[in-house]
Computed example of a mutant assay.
Amino acid sequence: MKAFLSFILLLALCTGCEEVIDLKLDSQEQQLVVDAALDWEKGKPGNEQKIHLSYTNDYYTNQPSETATGATVLVSASGNETYTFVDQGNGDYVCRDFKPEPDKNYRLTIDYKGKRYTSEDRMREVPELTESNITQRSDGGFFKDEIALRLTFPTQTDGDNYFMIKVAYMKENNKKSRVYAVDDKFDSDGKISRSFTGSNIGGKFLKGDEVEITLYRVSKQYQLFMDLLIANSLDDAQRGRPMFTSPVRVYGNVVYEPDPKQNPFGAFRVAQYSKIVYIVK
């Protein structure tokens, strides 16, 4: 009984003496973020493209990121074409007469507040996906008890086989998705195969689910960039590294040539993609 009364007294002292501690957290200077993904769906015109410029934000804030307006944004293709991306006043820069072409080099130029940021990438043709590229199994997952979808597609003979795969589907009225960066490093038979289970995305695949699979063909540099971003988004156990290890800053391919330390966040890509919606059986 005496021990119980002592516990009640201790509890009262703990709950009755609350003190709010105001932590003063360091805030770094805002940095430019470039979201310049010019994606062209195979078989579609691809004429309307958008680039978004914004700033980094404090980690604990609930406020939206500040947008960057007033920049001059151009994309030039190998040849004589130069496309102007018009400032929309909200961080978006839009071009409606873009003409994507396979095997062409594209150069991004951003002039903003007295600085010029540049990047280059090459458009590569992606294999076209059909339902024949997907195999469904029922022995997927850690316990071999869930539906798995296996995507198989041919690689190109040019040896430049770097891809990004996005898998998305609706679960409990929310769209769940996950991105994978892949290459043919461990595939030597002229094709790449990867398997996906719903439990790694947001919940097990069920019969009747519509699973959208999008395959982008990207450059090696961009694939490595995405690989690092994906690794940083996983927890320590998923990364296979010691607990509480801080993620590293990921540098993209947009550069400020006079001082690489001032390179912005984000990256530039020009990518053709193929998309299929698969109904789980």
Rank of each mutant, 00 (worst) to 15 (best):
K104V: 05
Y106D: 08
Y106N: 10
R107K: 13
L108N: 04
L108I: 03
L108W: 02
D111Y: 03
D111L: 02
G114H: 09
K115V: 01
K115Y: 01
Y117M: 02
D121E: 08
D121L: 05
R122K: 13
M123S: 12
M123E: 02
R124P: 04
P127T: 02
L129A: 03
E131V: 11
S132N: 09
S132Q: 14
I134M: 11
T135L: 15
Q136C: 03
R137A: 14
S138I: 08
S138C: 11
S138E: 13
D139Y: 09
G140R: 04
G141W: 07
K144M: 12
E146H: 01
I147P: 00
A148T: 09
T152F: 04
T152I: 02
F153D: 01
T155Y: 10
T155R: 03
Q156G: 02
Q156E: 06
Q156R: 12
D158L: 03
D158R: 08
D158V: 07
G159D: 02
N161P: 06
F163Q: 06
M164F: 14
I165H: 03
I165M: 06
Y169I: 02
M170H: 00
M170E: 13
K171S: 11
E172Q: 05
N173Q: 05
N174F: 05
N174E: 14
N174M: 12
K175S: 05
S177D: 15
S177W: 14
R178G: 08
V179R: 06
V179Q: 00
V182L: 15
D183S: 13
D183M: 08
D183K: 10
D184H: 02
K185L: 10
K185M: 04
F186N: 13
D189Y: 12
K191T: 03
I192F: 15
I192S: 12
S193E: 12
S193L: 09
S195C: 11
S195L: 12
T197E: 08
G198Q: 04
N200I: 00
G202D: 11
G202M: 09
G208T: 10
G208I: 11
E210M: 07
T214V: 09
Y216L: 13
